[in-house]
């Protein structure tokens, strides 16, 4: 016919989980671990900051997980909280175990746009994971000023404390806030929004990642501080199921978030997020 496009047959099915060996398990908090995966056969394209992979536990299932670290040898890190059957299986993995991964998928934080500018990064809870590689890249001296605001439930729920020390040593202004703490806690108590509202200075560009409610609140605070809404970026999550824009389940308005997200511009989603049940 009549074929409107020339179909391609053969090659690796895009749904195939590629086997990876778990080579390190670092416990971050009581229910969060960071796994380092090493490819056993095919090497995935290195994830850009903000991209995610579909992680597969043999016999259990598959979930989307943001990549929280990459190296040149095809290894990458995943930071996972145990909440459901698959994430529990992933968190329970031990060095030597095999997990599947396919991807990376989705959009990335616009790192290049952050060069020579004042950059604000706001992360809530596990939302620091997809920002970790972004901060690593930015911390190398790209932006003029880099402020990182980290929100967590309690002090022992704060992720990547060693990285935070390293970022501080690079001159990054890291501010941590928790919902509640003892008086021994030397950071702030309150929301990430409070910290952003206290900054007292506009940043040129903001990357915000965390629970949706936290992102909307923090994004508004950043905008109130003077950041242009078109320069605020958030990372949104819906039911990412196939990862390749075929299954239709991660739609948010006109966005297929596995393809057009997870990282999206605030001004393109603010109205969608206001509409209940989108």
């Amino acid at each position: 016919m009549a074929a409107l496009v020339e179909p391609v047959v053969g090659g690796i099915d895009p749904l195939t989980p590629v086997p990876h060996r778990v080579v390190a398990v670092d416990r971050e908090t009581s229910d969060v671990v960071t796994l380092t995966l090493d490819p056993l056969s095919e090497v995935l394209v290195p994830a850009l900051p903000g991209q995610f992979v579909m992680v597969w536990a043999f016999g259990v299932g598959e979930i989307p997980v943001s990549v929280s670290g990459v190296d040149d040898a095809g290894r990458f890190a995943l930071t996972v909280r145990a909440v459901g059957p698959v994430s529990n299986a992933v968190v329970a993995a031990r060095p030597g175990d095999t997990l599947g991964a396919r991807g990376p998928y989705g959009t990335a934080w616009p790192i290049a746009d952050a060069k020579d500018r004042d950059v604000l990064v706001v992360a809530g809870g596990l939302g620091l994971a997809p920002l970790r590689t972004a901060i690593d890249e930015l911390g190398g001296g790209g932006p003029r000023r880099l402020t990182v605001v980290v929100g967590a439930r309690e002090p022992d729920q704060v992720l990547f404390t060693a990285d935070q020390r390293r970022w501080r040593d690079l001159g990054v202004d890291v501010q941590i806030t928790v919902d509640a703490a003892s008086w021994r806690w030397d950071g702030a108590v309150g929301t990430a929004t409070d910290v952003v509202a206290r900054l007292g200075a506009a940043h040129d560009i903001a990357f915000v990642c965390g629970p949706e409610l936290m992102m909307t609140s923090a994004a508004r605070a950043a905008i109130a501080q003077g950041t242009d809404p078109a320069n605020v970026w958030v990372s949104l999550e819906r039911n990412m199921h196939c990862g390749i824009a075929h299954c239709g389940r991660c739609q948010l308005g006109a966005l297929l978030l596995c393809r057009d997200g997870a990282v999206v511009r605030w001004d393109r989603v603010v109205e969608l997020l206001r509409e209940r049940g989108r």
Partner: peptide, 19 residues
């Protein structure tokens, strides 16, 4: 108003669930 906003956000245990 700021304290109330924060108290409400803190009340919902935002970070407890998976991102």
């Amino acid at each position: 108003a700021d304290r109330l906003r924060s108290a409400r956000l803190q009340l919902v245990d935002l970070y407890g669930r998976a991102r």
